[in-house]
């Protein structure tokens, strides 16, 4: 290359450090996409951390309303958690299936993931509806405000994930395992796993710590 030739004179090691590892050039698209998505996930986690912080600040502010221990149903939460963790496993299966280009296992893995996600959402929705019906909606107290927002924000993410999941399945159906479809699948898997990690936080901070009498 021309630039190779002309740049020979440039100081390769201006600060005499000894070792200079030459940067090999732009990364391949797969890496770039996944990296960018990671950065996005980090920013999303920052956003969640604000809601966590709000929950920590407001969890004692019940304004005469119920405390956490009075309204949390540990059994439901346990089922939710199992659903979500299992769905991460099946999502991983679907990713592997996509990598080896096996449609059957891909569709199966994604379908199970979707069903588990929907069960999770259904339980959460019931919990919310039940609380609102008992007069413990988010405007009852600052504590409930923070609770509904944190858990609801996670729920919204799961809903978006389900929408994405269905789009992903449709894409594989229509386009097969094309390079760009596979890249998106990788991002989806990252997203789904990240939601799991956040749920672990929600579970511990909201339901375990907040559920303590």
């Amino acid at each position: 290359m021309a630039m190779t030739a002309t740049a020979d004179h440039a100081r390769a090691d201006p600060h005499q450090i000894g070792v200079v590892v030459e940067h090999p050039g732009p990364a391949p698209k797969r890496i770039v996409t996944a990296y960018g998505f990671w950065v996005f996930l980090l920013s999303d986690i920052v956003m969640f951390s604000c809601f966590f912080a709000a929950y920590a600040v407001l969890s004692g502010q019940t304004a005469g309303g119920p405390k956490g221990a009075e309204i949390f149903e540990q059994r439901n939460v346990a089922i939710e958690t199992v659903c979500l963790l299992l769905s991460s496993f099946t999502c991983g299966m679907a990713s592997i299936a996509a990598d080896v280009r096996n449609r059957f296992w891909f569709y199966l893995g994604m379908t199970v993931t979707c069903v588990l996600g929907l069960i999770f959402l259904a339980i959460e929705f019931r919990e919310f509806a039940d609380l609102v019906a008992r007069g413990y909606g988010p405007s009852r107290s600052a504590f409930l405000t923070a609770f509904f927002s944190l858990v609801g924000c996670h729920g919204l993410h799961v809903s978006a994930g389900v929408l994405w999941l269905l789009t992903m399945m449709a894409q594989v159906f229509a386009k097969g395992f094309r390079a760009d479809v596979l890249r998106r699948m990788m991002c989806f898997a990252l997203f789904w796993h990240a939601l799991d990690i956040i749920w672990v936080g929600v579970f511990s901070v909201v339901y375990l710590l907040g559920g303590a009498p």
């Binding site: 920013s43 956003m47 407001l58 405007s139 600052a142 927002s149």
Partner: peptide, 27 residues
């Protein structure tokens, strides 16, 4: 993302009667 979350909280207060930053109900 902090700005997004903060404004989202303000909007929830304004639109749905939440109590993040209100004077009442422990905001």
């Amino acid at each position: 993302p902090i700005l997004t979350a903060t404004l989202a909280m303000l909007l929830l207060d304004r639109y749905l009667g939440f109590h993040f930053f209100t004077n009442e109900a422990g905001g």
